[in-house]
Amino acid sequence: MTSSERRSEHCPAAAAQAPGIAVEHLTVGYNGRPAVVDVSLELSSGSICALVGMNGAGKSTLFKALMGFLKPSTGSIRIAGCGLRQAQREQMVAYVPQSEQVDWDFPIRVWDVVMMGRYGAMGPLRWSSGEDRRLVRRALERVDLWTLRDRQIGALSGGQRKRAFLARALAQGARVLLLDEPFSGVDISTERLIIDLLIELRDQGATVLLATHDLESIPSFCDRVVLINRTVLAYGDTSEVFTQANLLRTFSAASPTAQHS
């Protein structure tokens, strides 16, 4: 039994049917200034949802709230029917960061990064078991990085770097994936690989939420779309919501930060 299991009760059995991500009337911001207001979303298991909005529209804020870095001033977040911290302790949530947030000079190998996906399932000393190593290997093979496993992470190309972090999420085996700009700075073949992988995970029941500026690729693999500008402008099936008129509304509205400064 790991320490993370001891700290928390297990989620109710009904959690399997609960939506992967359920956000209700969420208002959250910095130092009492709300950055996103009254956001409600329900993403079912086995779906891919794109989060689209201008810079400063609140995408990062929403992600930070979903990661538990910001405390909501009102509203709630449930992951697979559980509270956020509990879901995190039970390895239900994986996060793939933006490339800009990573220190690529860090003295760490590709293998070590992917192994970090297993830390939550290990004992307090983080000693890897044969099972951990097997899962890491499988994840590395799935994203075609097995032969590069001993490289320092900064020695990878832009697309390979993304794949390394995706492999970490795979090794973690989470049911909910949060990806921040997964396609920025990657070549077309890596984009294809990432999309195929996300589709595969969705078909296995994962809930995927990705913030993206790559509008062209959205209709090809996203089931749902959320358009935001401080609050949800439109949310629903891609075919209904991802329209010219809605996008115009999302990207032409007065800049949300400008209103407040």
Partner: peptide
């Protein structure tokens, strides 16, 4: 020495550390 892996993860990627429940 006991916590070096957790501390290393915390230095490298606090978001991931958080998302796995640390």
């Amino acid at each position: 020495l006991v916590l070096r892996r957790d501390l290393l993860l915390f230095c490298f990627d606090p978001s991931h550390a958080r998302s796995i429940g640390l």
